[in-house]
Deep mutational scan, measured.
Amino acid sequence: NITNLCPFDEVFNATRFASVYAWNRKRISNCVADYSVLYNLAPFFTFKCYGVSPTKLNDLCFTNVYADSFVIRGDEVRQIAPGQTGNIADYNYKLPDDFTGCVIAWNSNKLDSKVSGNYNYLYRLFRKSNLKPFERDISTEIYQAGNKPCNGVAGFNCYFPLRSYSFRPTYGVGHQPYRVVVLSFELLHAPATVCGPKKST
């Protein structure tokens, strides 16, 4: 009989979030998941669920729940959905087409922007091929755009693959930082360890 609440607040209220290319994953298990708490945590810009209804979450049980978190800019949030393409979905964080879970995003301009520009958040701009779903690539190998090998040196047709967002508070919403948490629900042929409040007794 599990009584402890799932530590969603640790994920959502973390002081620092990860850069999207090096997104963070927390496995959540053996706890009571009260998803209604999430609705009250922040004024969400996005709370979209796929393959599951957000209002039914509190009635369900899962084997595992994974919470992935990272920062992107406002106009990239739409890429965090099944079947999307674009720089983020292709080279940084890719959801599977049959994704079961929820994408939660909110504006973090007050936390993640600086007047002089916050350069701490990076994204991958160049990659030889698209990522597979939930693949994480943290390599910093020089990207070869031409025929000549780069031998690890940046220059003509040889690019450092990561680029930094420079978040400034005066930017338009599309270029402001957004914190994203992706909850993916895993149903294996194994005992369910993460249940809503109704199912945990």
Rank of each mutant, 00 (worst) to 15 (best):
105 A>F: 08
36 S>F: 04
97 D>V: 09
52 V>R: 02
79 Q>G: 02
201 T>K: 14
187 L>N: 14
61 C>I: 08
162 L>H: 03
22 A>M: 09
132 K>A: 12
71 V>I: 07
38 L>V: 10
28 I>W: 15
43 P>F: 04
99 F>D: 00
160 F>D: 11
159 Y>P: 08
133 P>H: 02
28 I>M: 15
198 K>D: 12
75 D>I: 06
112 D>M: 01
60 L>K: 08
49 C>N: 00
136 R>H: 06
136 R>V: 04
56 K>N: 12
92 N>A: 03
6 C>N: 03
149 P>L: 09
158 C>G: 04
20 V>Q: 04
98 D>L: 05
139 S>H: 06
85 T>I: 08
63 T>M: 08
47 F>Y: 11
174 G>L: 13
76 E>K: 02
71 V>M: 02
56 K>I: 08
76 E>S: 02
154 A>D: 12
47 F>E: 03
111 L>R: 09
134 F>A: 06
175 H>S: 15
70 F>M: 03
46 T>H: 15
72 I>Y: 01
29 S>Q: 11
104 I>E: 00
64 N>I: 13
58 N>D: 12
11 V>G: 02
185 F>T: 02
86 G>K: 02
22 A>I: 02
104 I>A: 06
111 L>F: 11
86 G>H: 01
29 S>K: 09
51 G>P: 00
28 I>D: 01
181 V>G: 00
118 N>L: 05
142 I>Y: 09
118 N>V: 06
186 E>D: 14
74 G>H: 03
178 Y>H: 15
56 K>G: 11
159 Y>N: 10
172 G>T: 14
170 T>W: 14
25 R>T: 02
36 S>M: 06
81 A>N: 03
106 W>H: 00
168 R>N: 15
76 E>G: 01
60 L>H: 10
71 V>H: 01
58 N>V: 07
102 C>K: 00
55 T>I: 10
119 Y>H: 15
125 L>Y: 15
171 Y>R: 14
161 P>F: 01
111 L>D: 12
61 C>S: 07
200 S>Y: 12
119 Y>I: 11
94 K>T: 07
5 L>D: 09
16 R>K: 14
89 A>T: 06
53 S>I: 07
22 A>D: 12
78 R>W: 09
189 H>R: 13
191 P>I: 03
173 V>G: 10
180 V>K: 00
115 V>T: 14
126 F>R: 10
128 K>H: 13
18 A>Y: 07
145 A>D: 11
172 G>L: 12
95 L>I: 11
195 C>K: 06
129 S>M: 08
60 L>S: 11
130 N>V: 15
59 D>L: 07
52 V>F: 12
87 N>I: 15
12 F>I: 07
52 V>Q: 04
152 G>H: 09
19 S>A: 06
86 G>M: 04
35 Y>G: 07
5 L>Y: 11
142 I>F: 09
101 G>S: 00
107 N>L: 02
164 S>K: 14
169 P>I: 01
169 P>E: 12
163 R>E: 11
96 P>C: 00
55 T>L: 13
194 V>P: 11
132 K>I: 07
105 A>E: 02
30 N>S: 08
92 N>M: 02
135 E>C: 04
95 L>H: 00
118 N>I: 04
22 A>L: 05
72 I>F: 01
167 F>V: 05
58 N>W: 07
12 F>C: 03
17 F>Q: 03
86 G>F: 04
194 V>W: 09
123 Y>V: 07
199 K>C: 12
81 A>V: 04
97 D>K: 09
159 Y>D: 10
50 Y>L: 01
110 K>P: 08
12 F>S: 03
45 F>S: 15
144 Q>W: 02
182 V>C: 04
114 K>I: 10
194 V>F: 09
66 Y>G: 02
15 T>Q: 10
171 Y>Q: 15
16 R>Y: 12
197 P>I: 15
185 F>N: 01
149 P>T: 15
3 T>E: 08
27 R>C: 08
196 G>F: 10
55 T>W: 10
129 S>G: 12
143 Y>G: 06
126 F>Q: 13
113 S>W: 06
62 F>C: 09
61 C>A: 09
35 Y>N: 06
14 A>N: 08
112 D>N: 03
167 F>R: 02
135 E>L: 03
23 W>E: 04
26 K>W: 04
162 L>C: 03
103 V>I: 07
143 Y>C: 06
199 K>Y: 15
29 S>M: 08
123 Y>G: 04
154 A>F: 09
167 F>S: 06
150 C>P: 04
7 P>Y: 07
75 D>P: 03
92 N>V: 02
115 V>R: 13
12 F>P: 01
129 S>Q: 14
101 G>N: 00
24 N>W: 00
138 I>R: 08
173 V>Y: 12
60 L>E: 09
18 A>V: 04
122 L>R: 15
192 A>Y: 14
12 F>E: 02
151 N>D: 13
127 R>G: 05
123 Y>N: 05
25 R>G: 02
105 A>N: 03
177 P>M: 06
33 A>I: 15
111 L>Q: 15
76 E>I: 00
30 N>P: 07
67 A>Y: 03
143 Y>P: 06
35 Y>F: 15
160 F>W: 13
59 D>T: 12
62 F>I: 11
62 F>Q: 07
83 G>F: 10
33 A>V: 15
20 V>N: 04
146 G>S: 12
13 N>F: 10
43 P>L: 05
142 I>H: 06
185 F>K: 01
120 N>I: 08
84 Q>M: 14
10 E>L: 07
84 Q>P: 02
187 L>P: 09
149 P>N: 11
14 A>R: 08
121 Y>N: 05
65 V>Q: 02
58 N>L: 06
91 Y>H: 08
93 Y>A: 02
134 F>K: 04
61 C>T: 07
45 F>Y: 15
174 G>I: 08
8 F>E: 02
17 F>P: 04
79 Q>I: 00
73 R>N: 07
122 L>M: 15
195 C>I: 07
153 V>R: 14
184 S>W: 12
80 I>S: 02
180 V>D: 00
55 T>M: 13
172 G>F: 11
86 G>Q: 03
51 G>K: 09
192 A>V: 13
121 Y>K: 04
60 L>V: 11
171 Y>H: 14
170 T>S: 14
11 V>D: 04
1 N>C: 01
38 L>G: 02
183 L>F: 06
88 I>D: 02
49 C>A: 00
67 A>F: 05
99 F>H: 00
95 L>D: 00
140 T>H: 11
46 T>G: 06
157 N>W: 07
59 D>E: 15
83 G>I: 03
187 L>G: 14
181 V>W: 02
85 T>V: 10
173 V>E: 14
192 A>C: 11
63 T>Y: 08
134 F>Q: 08
94 K>P: 00
99 F>K: 00
24 N>E: 14
125 L>R: 15
22 A>C: 08
190 A>C: 10
150 C>H: 03
197 P>N: 15
141 E>T: 12
137 D>I: 01
121 Y>A: 05
42 A>K: 14
61 C>F: 07
28 I>S: 02
187 L>W: 10
78 R>H: 12
37 V>C: 12
102 C>M: 00
112 D>Q: 02
82 P>I: 00
83 G>R: 12
106 W>A: 01
61 C>N: 13
100 T>V: 14
68 D>C: 02
78 R>V: 11
176 Q>G: 05
67 A>C: 08
102 C>F: 00
134 F>S: 07
160 F>R: 13
38 L>Y: 03
76 E>P: 01
144 Q>A: 10
121 Y>M: 06
128 K>I: 08
157 N>D: 14
44 F>C: 13
160 F>P: 14
47 F>A: 10
4 N>S: 12
5 L>G: 10
36 S>K: 11
128 K>R: 12
162 L>K: 03
44 F>A: 15
131 L>H: 02
43 P>V: 05
14 A>C: 06
14 A>I: 05
34 D>W: 06
185 F>E: 01
14 A>T: 07
64 N>S: 12
43 P>K: 11
75 D>G: 06
188 L>K: 15
114 K>D: 15
65 V>A: 11
45 F>L: 14
105 A>Q: 03
160 F>H: 15
140 T>P: 06
108 S>W: 02
97 D>S: 09
144 Q>P: 08
47 F>D: 00
17 F>V: 05
83 G>E: 06
8 F>H: 02
91 Y>A: 05
199 K>L: 13
157 N>S: 11
3 T>Y: 07
148 K>H: 12
110 K>I: 09
190 A>S: 13
83 G>H: 11
101 G>F: 00
56 K>S: 10
48 K>Q: 11
70 F>N: 01
193 T>N: 13
168 R>H: 12
186 E>R: 07
109 N>Q: 11
123 Y>R: 12
139 S>A: 08
